[in-house]
Design a protein around this nucleic acid. Structure first.
Lengths: 134, 134
DNA sequence: GTAGCTGCAAACTCTTTGCAACTCT
DNA sequence: AGAGTTGCAAAGAGTTTGCAGCTAC
């Protein structure tokens, strides 16, 4: 049983076959899968899984803060297991997503919000670029 | 004739009545209007204007880089005339949008992209917060 | 005159939801 | 047993588009 599965059970969710498959897909994902991606991967394990269940499950996980929903400049959402805090650089040519983290920026975000009279609750920082040739 | 109108004409666009109204709405907006907002404001001047025209016009302006399309954590787009480069802080309680600019962050964005092997093309930086009580 | 623009309604895409059947616990 | 979960299909929301008629140039 994955720790993700465990956290879901602890949250009071029933552990159905479909759910188990979806959680495993997420747990095993090394990328930032779209709903469609999760659906395809889950379906290849249990072909009875429906898109509706994938949507419902991802929404639940998002609400439980076990997963983060991203809406990059695409017209669909991508999901990612919640681990450490980081931001993303998206390759505008390939769609590849690279993660990065930067303490200075974290600090500046806070400072800026405070200076404007706000308490920072959330933030979105996405860089879009293309690979440099060496 | 607004300078926006002039730039459109220079781009080879025909200046129709509807377009003139929409451009004026954008030029006069002090906020970050949604398509619906632009539609309503334009319609109050010329009630024959259709939603389709508003969408088409905003898309054109975006392509001409006269306008910027924002997709904050809402499920619709907002538009803003292209002026100086800045970012946004969105009040998660009221939806109000505050603009800010920070040179240090601009520099760091570039550095981070370069360090990851990318040329920075675009970026999205949005802070979400709630007003601090004094 | 004609290329481009418009309004209308239909189509699209992604996402959500009502419902009846099913299944963990 | 019963609340929660599922698949299906229909509904939603925002946005785009085909088409026939209209208009700026």
């Amino acid at each position: 049983m994955t720790s993700l599965e465990q956290r879901c059970t602890e949250a009071g969710l029933k552990m159905t076959g479909q759910r188990r498959v979806i959680l495993k897909v997420l747990d095993g994902a090394e990328d930032h899968p779209s709903v469609e991606d999760v659906y395809e991967r889950a379906k290849s394990v249990d072909s009875s899984i429906s898109m509706a269940t994938v949507y419902r499950t991802l929404n639940m996980l998002d609400e439980l803060d076990l997963v983060t929903r991203h809406e990059f400049k695409e017209n669909f959402a991508r999901y990612e297991l919640n681990t450490d805090h980081h931001h993303h650089l998206i390759d505008i040519e390939s769609g590849e997503v690279v993660e990065f983290q930067n303490d200075e920026i974290e600090k500046m975000k806070e400072d800026i919000a405070k200076k404007l009279g706000y308490e920072l609750v959330e933030c979105r920082l996405e860089l879009y670029g293309k690979k440099l040739k060496k």
